[in-house]
Every structure is written in structure tokens, then in C-alpha cells.
């Protein structure tokens, strides 16, 4: 009986070992297809808990300059070619890189905005900037999040939920 059970346990372990890399491959292929989830972070002093896609679009297109209460918004973006920049352009603003540049030239030229969002070359710098600026806001890959910032719901959905829009 004992002899007969031992191969059974080992078979189960072996099957799990067989499935584990297969699952890892599946997850990895999913990540390659969609990329890691991107979250919206603000300074912990900011009282808002949730933001709509419309507000995000108006912030990063320079149409909205202040948080409720009057605090000036300081928006930060990543450099071209990064996951955060791709999500910002494709999901939030729905424009191409060259259209983004042209939009900001028009925005500043018309006097609507004083400057475009500051471009930062790493997520570490983004974290530091949002921690330093009370009105700071930036998009960051969930895997690079560290303490000291607040993550916002987007359209009422938390990162990780099926309806979360910034995937």
C-alpha cells in the first residue's frame, strides 16, 4: 500500500512540476502581449483617491492645471520607448508620439499651458519626483512601485481588477 502510494505522490509532484513551467510560459506570453500593468501615482498629501480617464487625459494634455483645492498639478512622463509612455499615448491620449509633440507645441503656443510635462528617464526618478511634489502625478509600471506614493483608482477600478483600463 505504502509502495503503491509513493509513486502516486511523486506522480502528482511531477505533474505539478510539469505544469509550473507551462503556466509560467503562459503568464510570460500574456505579459509580452499586454505588458505589465501601469498605475497612476500621486503624492500621499493629495486627497484624491480616484481619477477618471477624462481627467487623466486633461491633465496630460495640459487642459487641467489644478487639483481640487487649488494645488498646482505637476505632471511627469517617461521618455519615448517606455511602457508608461506607450500606455499614456495609446490608452489615455490616443495619439502618436509625433502628434503628442505637435499637440504640446500648439498648447504652449496658444497660451493654454506654460510647459509640457517633465520627461524623466527612469521610474526611480518618477518616484522621487512624485514624492517631492505635492501636486505630482505620473504613470508607473506596477512592478516598479515603492512606498512613499499613493496609487489611484482609475474610473473607480483598482489596478489588478478586470475592468482596470491601463493595462
Amino acid at each position: 500500500m505504502t509502495i503503491s502510494r509513493k509513486p502516486g505522490i511523486l506522480s502528482t509532484v511531477s505533474l505539478a512540476l510539469l505544469l509550473l513551467p507551462a503556466c509560467t510560459l503562459c503568464q510570460q506570453e500574456r505579459d509580452e502581449a499586454t505588458g505589465p500593468e501601469v498605475v497612476v501615482m500621486v503624492n500621499p498629501a493629495n486627497k484624491i483617491e480616484s481619477i477618471s480617464m477624462g481627467e487623466l487625459r486633461r491633465i496630460f494634455s495640459g487642459e487641467k492645471h489644478s487639483w481640487p483645492g487649488g494645488l498646482a498639478i505637476a505632471a511627469f512622463v517617461r521618455a519615448p520607448g517606455t511602457r508608461e509612455r506607450d500606455v499614456l499615448l495609446a490608452r489615455v491620449l490616443r495619439i502618436s508620439e509625433s502628434e503628442y509633440k505637435a499637440h504640446w507645441i500648439k498648447q504652449i503656443y496658444s497660451g493654454e499651458s506654460q510647459h509640457e510635462p517633465l520627461v524623466l528617464v527612469s521610474n526611480g526618478m518618477q518616484l522621487e519626483a512624485v514624492r517631492a511634489e505635492k501636486g505630482g502625478i505620473a504613470l508607473i509600471s506596477a512592478k516598479d512601485l515603492h512606498p512613499g506614493v499613493k496609487v489611484l483608482k482609475v474610473d473607480g477600478h483598482l489596478p489588478g481588477s478586470p475592468e482596470y483600463p491601463l493595462k
Binding site: S14, L17, L18, L20, P21, A22, T24, L25
Partner: peptide, 10 residues
């Protein structure tokens, strides 16, 4: 076979 799959996966 399991070990081979693990190695392949990693």
C-alpha cells in the same frame, strides 16, 4: 521529463 521542462521554462 519534469526537470527538462523546468529547465526549458527557466
Amino acid at each position: 521529463v519534469s526537470a527538462a521542462f523546468c529547465l526549458a521554462g527557466s
